[in-house]
Amino acid sequence: MNALLDVRGLEVRYGGIVALRGIDFRVDEGEIVALLGANGAGKTTTLRAISGLLPIRAGDLTFAGTNFRKHGADAIARLGIAHVPEGRRVFTRMTVRENLELGGYAVAARRELDVRIDEVLSIFPRLHERIAQRAGTLSGGEQQMLAIGRALVAQPRLLVLDEPSLGLAPLIVAQIFEVLRDIHRRGTTIVLVEQNAHAALALADRGYVLRNGEIARNDTAANLARDPAVVAAYLGGE
């Protein structure tokens, strides 16, 4: 089976410091893959390197057969990878609708864009109520919905999410994970970075555990959730 996303030997440095080393990582079409690890293990760095936001020191990146190691972030987005960044990063001074329109920036046809935005609004009715509001006036949960919605307007083949539950009330987190499950059912492949490892492993098919910039474990989500070492390190306290 061909991998949708294939990462081989990825290395990233910040100045002289090695942040990621020898990361091998693959995601097959239709999977949900969780990236776990402590703060500073390199989860966000991995996602940012894949999306072209960080320069890569070594390694190869392939998406649906296309080597995109030398692509810029915008070109990677147009390949079909949508990254919902840590901290949501919605355009706070623009309206909800403008944010969604920008999500479909690569969609030239106005009518097609409107259809896609309507679809996203049916997934997130809350955004529909806030459509003309500035994104900066939304609550944290609504901003996260908007960040995901903005990514979905692009109709990506791969949705990459960085800490979608961070700082949100449990009820909102449950809603967002329900939406992710639904998006996945409709055929979108998902890579998820989460502090909330319980929720992530409940959703994911497979998981990678990062430690100090390297991959420490790689197994099915069910096995990881049962593993005493993983439980002690990342699932403790609950």
Partner: peptide, 18 residues
């Protein structure tokens, strides 16, 4: 709109394909 997006958040703008 792309100009305003880049003005506000360059990384986020590039992530939507700008």
């Amino acid at each position: 709109k792309a100009m305003r997006a880049v003005a506000q958040d360059r990384d986020a703008a590039s992530l939507v394909g700008i």
